[in-house]
Write a protein that binds this DNA or RNA. Structure first.
Lengths: 351, 351
DNA sequence: ATGAAAGCGCTAACAA
DNA sequence: TTGTTAGCGCTTTCAT
């Protein structure tokens, strides 16, 4: 039970050939499933299979890949793993990859442009069959690398310009969320506090930009012109969000009647602040979060959340890859609204 | 911008050799960083590098791996991605792999024994340099495969018997959590309701078993013998947990004074139930959760959580791999207690 | 119905 | 300081 390194080296095709008295080509076709095309007799095939099994043979995919000019590796790059959305993307990606008998290779780049480049170069060097690009700071640079390396690629939740993209319909999602919180907010509060605010994200980020569009659109239609200070795109850091919400509350003399929070990390920052406020003040504020966390459904005040349809996003991406689409088209997938299910709603909505 | 498939095939070492007038071995050593050992002149090296750069050359790692008998691929298998703990494991794993210039290959198996085997066979076939096994239903089978394939492996958060293991000290963690909730629970409630309960997990699971040990140990020391019905190992499904907590409450005529919840999914199930109860009843119950979710810190009642030290777990695993340890030793890493930071605690602890 | 042999792109002796 | 060459394990054309 406690031997050191590989006792016997792994058996190769040649070993199996020798052991079975067949040629390497016969063994190869039997073991790679092309034996019927070669009209190998069932009896030979069976003998070879059993010997291979007994020897613990398994195909060396580096060799196969080298010979066939592919790798059966499917690449995905994303910013990070500890995030529900990307975790769901990864899970779906794996399922789709496996269904095609590909090995998923998922790598995160922590939104570091240098790391993104290094990673993609590495994946290309690894001869991945295609790359799905989910969340990159410089999509164009990555696209260029793939192109140069002859690697088919698809952008996910991120619009690219040199290949197909599958993205959430952020504008529609934001509009939906905004409608929802406007419907629920107390009207009649005068002045700046009576207006909805948008918090978090980076305007340079395409997703944030589209969400701001959706927010503006709905607010403008229902409450008139949107003041620039109603949009606070302060990035994704909880600490920054905390500072911003505190400052906002200071300015307004209380929480606004409606708050559109652009990401779960921003929401976390907001939470650390509002948790210190008197419950009555929190109850005067309707919160919408453009991200989803099941636990947030149970907070003592209602949180309306948007959940991106990660499964559909990934499924469409694979369809494009299967169809060998290379043209830069854009597919949009509608996200879903997740209503609150909190103690608060129990007390006030159901109770 | 919109060309079809690989225009020019990727340049090879031979192409660069021809273009630079050098031999393939010279080019190889320059491009793989072994050129100083070969005493290649700086000028030749630089010329080759620039030509390679201009041609967009990148090493074909399948070929390199085949030749060198390795792959520079680091494997990790885990049950799933949409879980904070495993996501953190993945993130750390990537960092450690990258620091060693390895490409991380992380695959989830959804706790499906068939899938585990298939995945490991696949990874071995891919010639991964080593495998980290985090959460498998049949560790022994996986170990056997690795052994047969000559692949070094380390178990993570899971005790294996044919290779080194790095695990959370679940017993100590559970004991700590139990101490904490016993300290906070209301004493003096008579009968079964006055006792702490353990909910969730699978007794066959080593982690659950150790946690039950820790729980029993502390409860026994402080409150006397533990009744078998105080341990409800009902698996991980939220729906099942919901049913179990509802049934328990029915039996006891209220929530118990202390509840040890064995996983975040179980906690979710518990939440869906207790959220329907009057707030006063919830306040009589101290909850400890052996898992961590930052949002849960903000629930309207205190939740004491245990956070496993995923970074340390992974770091130790890589140390063992670096040191080429193959013997089945066991390393335990202490987890951390995360105190509540809820509105509830604000009101009652700080206010 | 099966075998022989070339070669995928790279590395590492060994030669010079 | 550099070049020649064998061969990693596999697939696939061409023969038979």
């Amino acid at each position: 039970m406690n031997d050191p390194r590989p006792l016997r080296p792994k058996p190769t095709l040649r070993d199996i050939a020798r052991l079975s008295g067949a040629s390497t080509s016969t063994v190869s076709s039997v073991l790679s499933g092309t034996w019927q095309a070669r009209r190998i007799s069932e009896i030979t095939a069976e003998r070879i299979r059993s010997i291979a099994g007994a020897q613990g043979y398994s195909t060396n995919r580096q060799a196969r890949g080298l010979r066939r000019g592919q790798s059966e590796l499917a690449g995905l790059i994303l910013p990070m793993h500890d995030n529900r959305f990307f975790a769901a993307i990864t899970q779906s990606f794996e399922a789709e990859a496996r269904a095609r008998n590909l090995c998923p290779v998922v790598v995160s780049t922590l939104r570091d442009p240098r790391e993104e480049i290094r990673t993609v170069e590495r994946l290309i060097s690894q001869a991945i069959d295609f790359l799905v690009i989910a969340g990159a700071t410089d999509p164009a640079a990555i696209g260029a690398l793939c192109r140069a390396g002859g690697v088919r690629h698809v952008y996910l939740d991120l619009p690219g310009h040199d290949a197909p993209s599958v993205v959430s319909d952020n504008r529609a999602g934001a509009a939906l969320l905004t409608e929802t919180i406007l419907d629920r907010m107390e009207s009649g509060t005068a002045g700046p506090r009576g207006r909805p605010y948008f918090l978090g994200g980076a305007p340079a980020d395409a997703a944030t930009a589209r969400r701001i569009e959706g927010f503006r659109e709905v607010v403008a239609a229902r409450l008139g012109p949107v003041d620039p200070d109603q949009v606070i795109a302060c990035g994704y850091a909880p600490s920054r969000a905390r500072a911003e919400i505190a400052a906002l509350r200071e300015r307004l003399g209380g929480l606004p009647v409606a708050l559109f929070v652009n990401a779960i990390t921003v929401f976390e920052g907001v939470l650390t602040h509002i948790v210190t406020l008197p419950p009555a003040e929190i109850e005067g504020c309707v919160i919408g979060c453009y991200d989803h966390d099941p636990i947030a459904s149970f907070l003592p005040f209602p949180v309306h959340m948007i959940r991106q349809n990660s499964e559909a996003l990934v499924a469409r991406a694979f369809e494009l890859i299967d169809a060998e689409v290379d043209a830069p088209l854009l597919v949009e997938i509608a996200p879903d609204l997740v209503p609150p299910r909190s103690i608060h709603s129990t007390r006030f909505d159901l109770g």
